[in-house]
Amino acid sequence: MSAPTEVPPLVSRALDLSRRRGFITATRHETGRLLATLAASRTGTLAELGTGCGVGSAWLSSGVAEGARIVSAELDPKLAEAVQDLFSDTPSVEVTSGDWSALERYAPFSLLFVDVRDVKRSVDLVADLMEHGGIAVLDDFTPSYTWPPIYEGRVDVVREQWLTDERFVAVEVMVAPDASVILATRV
């Protein structure tokens, strides 16, 4: 059985923007469907660190519960403006120009999609942004079937830190044979 090929219209528009801007990577459909599913279970403020062309935020908005909102920050001001235009008819999504720290004022988050490599490496930083019971989703892992987790012949210390930090209950979840995410709930 193959995965559904249809994507929500807003996700399709974000993917089009991504192609026009020359981005060769965007949130995978498998991860996007997981984001939409998790967003449907959350209230309060959801966030994406690392907007890019808005694909992750579009997936979040396709499942977001009524009354919840999504905030996202993009470092490139021109790209942030293009993504703001993309979401102009989606009042639950706010895109700002700036690095991840531009979103600190919106914390704590009930769901945080972390798509910024440097932030993903800092469990402390993410923990400070999360509400208790909030879920962090960390993208772009290659599945590891060993402990400690190995990537490219070395211990993957980032993954190991997330899976063992006492402030989170965390699990690595395969979203495709070649891709996994870490789901970490703040306790």
Rank of each mutant, 00 (worst) to 15 (best):
S101Y: 01
L46M: 13
Y151H: 13
V11Q: 08
L15I: 12
D140H: 10
G50C: 10
L138W: 01
K120Y: 00
V93L: 07
A127S: 15
P108S: 13
A102S: 15
A127G: 11
T164G: 10
T27W: 01
A82Q: 14
A179I: 00
M130P: 07
G134T: 12
D140L: 03
V169W: 05
D85H: 09
L15R: 15
V7G: 01
H132N: 12
E81A: 15
R20T: 13
M174L: 14
A73L: 08
D16V: 10
V175H: 04
R159M: 14
V175L: 07
G63P: 03
V173F: 04
R33L: 09
R167P: 09
V71D: 09
R20M: 04
S12N: 12
T146P: 02
P143H: 03
L125F: 04
L79H: 03
L38H: 07
G98D: 07
T27G: 05
H29Q: 14
L112K: 07
L183R: 03
R13E: 15
Y106M: 08
A107D: 07
T5I: 13
V55M: 03
E131N: 06
L138Q: 05
V157F: 12
D89I: 02
A102E: 14
S2P: 08
V169M: 05
G32K: 04
P91V: 04
R121N: 04
I135M: 09
L111D: 09
L17F: 03
D128Y: 00
L183G: 05
G32S: 05
V71E: 07
L163P: 09
S101F: 01
V175M: 07
V55E: 05
L129G: 09
A136D: 04
W162N: 11
I135L: 13
